[in-house]
Design a protein around this nucleic acid. Sequence first.
DNA 1: GCAAATATACAGAACATTCGCTATGTTTAT
DNA 2: ATAAACATAGCGAATGTTCTGTATATTTGC
Lengths: 205, 205
Amino acid sequence: MDTKSRILETAFKMFLQKGFDGVSLNEIIKESDITTGGFYYHFDSKDTLLIEVINRYIFNYFDLVIEQIRDFEGTHKEKLKTVILLIVGDDSTINTTTQLVESAEKIDYRTLHLLLFEGVQKYDVIGEHYTEFYYNLFDFIKDVIDDGKDKGVLRPDIDSNKYSLLIQTAMVGTVIMWIGMPAMPLGERMESNLDILWDLMKNKT
Amino acid sequence: MDTKSRILETAFKMFLQKGFDGVSLNEIIKESDITTGGFYYHFDSKDTLLIEVINRYIFNYFDLVIEQIRDFEGTHKEKLKTVILLIVGDDSTINTTTQLVESAEKIDYRTLHLLLFEGVQKYDVIGEHYTEFYYNLFDFIKDVIDDGKDKGVLRPDIDSNKYSLLIQTAMVGTVIMWIGMPAMPLGERMESNLDILWDLMKNKT
DNA sequence: GCAAATATACAGAACATTCGCTATGTTTAT
DNA sequence: ATAAACATAGCGAATGTTCTGTATATTTGC
């Protein structure tokens, strides 16, 4: 791995552990086995480092998940469940093809969402990217619902816009509550919530 | 207002504007019209200042809302809606009795939730308080649902535990998406989501 | 009753440390 | 030889905190 990638990956890992403000540039430099000069050759500032880290390790991953799942074979419900569980980072769902870092270490998705959140608040570029991603996810969910309506799996009278937003909201809410209350089992809660919402939309005939 | 209260209130306002890490102690001291010595007479550190601020201005308010709303007269749905809209800080719902600060200035609830979130991540004490509050809110919602079931307003077969959690999750999710995408109208989205969920639980007979 | 003793509520300077970053020097690869 | 890829030293500003000092209020001893 080249130097820049090494910096990015160690920075990513350290950000996950202590947050962006929580880790200093010197710590990153030490951990990356480089020096100040080496760092500033590859990056303009600590800020741009964060932006690059988030783009590379979070948004790229998110986009990949949505892309991969479009050709996913399975029921509508499975499709929806899988994409959401992959994005929130449920352990039992994540497989090797969608791994975030090259090394085998596991990522703590709780802190990942926190880091993303920190970035969104700090830098407009990340905020815009964040919004864009959620529009993509919204479209994806809406497509699944519309297709489900066409195929007769879902009730024809439901408003796919409203329900897509609700599902997305429930997803975000589950993650955040999981962050605030780590004792909560993420996958279990997410599945329970999705089950309820799905039953709500399901064609009863 | 005495000195300590003055420090607390100005600190609260400044934290809302720029976040905890975003505002320095010197700025707070200047804005509070005191000096370093004065500050350290009343507080042990900047950390304890944040903890006191959050307890005083956020948790106290949350607890007050739940307490006040218990004797609230209205339908089950109204009760649920009101408590949630008060907690998330919907403009149209907040009245004078539940005002956060003594001065007439309006609070930006987006940054309030952010500040709380920042505190939860930083200090265990706040995290525990946060968890405790959500248990309280959960109990409140569950009571409303159970009472609704008793009164025949809601379907008797729904699992009040599961549904309470879902509602709470949707609430948190709505707030967070609102924070990340400020263009979203909070009250409107929250009401739409609650309406869907309520219809789901409503007795159809 | 009244001074001595003590507690309270601050003021202001100084401290040690850390921060992100720059300027300049050295090595390495082609 | 020349530019890319680093290494090293250190700057300047900002940080939270501690220290000592002071004015006022309250309590205590006789």
